[in-house]
Design a protein around this nucleic acid. Sequence first.
RNA 1: UGGGAGGUCGUCUAACGGUAGGACGGCGGACUCUGGAUCCGCUGGUGGAGGUUCGAGUCCUCCCCUCCCAGCCA
Length: 463
Amino acid sequence: MSNVVTRFAPSPTGHLHIGGARTAIFNWLLARHFGGRFVLRIEDTDTERSKQEYTDSILASMKWLGLDWDGDLIYQSERFDIYNSYIDRLLESGHAYWCECPPDEVEKMREEARAKGLKPRYNGRCRSRDLGPGDGRVVRLKAPAEGRIVFDDLVKGTVAFDVAELDDMVLRRSDGAPTYNLAVVVDDATMGVTHVLRGDDHLSNTPKQILLYQALGFDLPRFGHVPMILGPDRKKLSKRHGAKAVIEYEQYGLLPQALVNYLVRLGWSHGDQEIFALEELVEKFGTENLNSSAAGFDPDKLEWLNGHYLRETSPEELARLVLPFVAAEGFDVDASRLAQLVPLFRERANNLVELARVMRFMLVPAAEVEYDAAAVAKALTEEGRRHVAGVREALAALGTFDREGCEKAIHDYVEGNGLKFKQVAPAVRVAVVGAMGGPGLPDMMALLGRDDVLARLDRAVAL
RNA sequence: UGGGAGGUCGUCUAACGGUAGGACGGCGGACUCUGGAUCCGCUGGUGGAGGUUCGAGUCCUCCCCUCCCAGCCA
């Protein structure tokens, strides 16, 4: 057992989005690569915004992605006593103090600083007043007056901050609840977390947290700050860029391995390789090739990758996966039937919703086939219907109704009438499936069976 | 405004200071029914200006642009 411990610490204030998912994947891979532990911790210290429905959604998405965690799920809201005991220690050792300045007064200090072109922050008014506990009071860190904090970031290299830039952040709110920076330090230290991979929106929090590590006498973990995911236009990612929550990708018919592969490749590389199985990622992943510049989300590449995985999945597995999507279209089909269909149809879809859709004409009875008007106008002319009738007779006479037989029957009609396949096939195709597109005609016929095909051809002739 | 992080084809990502390549996308071709599959080809880039060097995407300086932080949110 390695001593590497990583964690993913989402706040249940929304569904898991791709930025968070990528962070989770990176941490999971690092732990698994080194045979270490991966901890899942729900950071619900903001009791107003945290919701159980989001916790449930996040857990479901983690499971869908295949990111299993070690040990019990941890909720910060259950550990307030622990955090507060550490805050008390900081008070005793002189690293923290009580402050009675209310939020609106602190905001005035910020405005004054802004007016002077300085950083907007708390000005330290209660710092030397030696106040004790009291209603409405908070506890603040007594940050050092001077110095530099330098650390070696796994992604960004050496990063330095001047302590003078930090203010005396709140550690305990006036309602007694601990704040994020205190809780995260206490948790990571007491859980033995060795590596903290997170978004670089927390880069500026790192010097504050290092001050806490030092004041509490904890060993520092290795920090790695991965860039935010942007839109393709390099602006902050939003829905207008096509970004969705993980649960929405699941509903959209994405395969988890495609999303994992795509997100890993968005900020990490292993030479020119694009496709990675999960086991391969576990084997090859490391922090060395994590990219320090922000990447833009590309829905087209994600779509292409998902199509690749659709084609790589076994027919039986794919049938099982697409079954709920077929059911959502209103069809009652068993998985063994779908396992026959999906090898043909997966070439024409890039996600499970599409796969269910492109197969639909194979799932309805002959009498309910919907005809595409443009296709009918183009192919089922009088001449076209004559061809359909002729092919119908050849098919009816077949001894064995299989793919080869169907192909031969069409060819026999074609050659017997001095025609070309392409003069006959479009009409037959529209007659059988109602549209111009789709897999090979003989293949589909064989899967529909003689009676169904003849009924479809008869119906088209009668149009 | 102050602090921090970044900038290679449209997007992702390679390139010991030594030939800027791969993938997706786009365009074209092949595939003797259709084609969202498959195969082949083309297109397309180092933000700008200086400097160091035999040689710079790579090192240095300035300018420009983007992102993040500056809640008693996380």
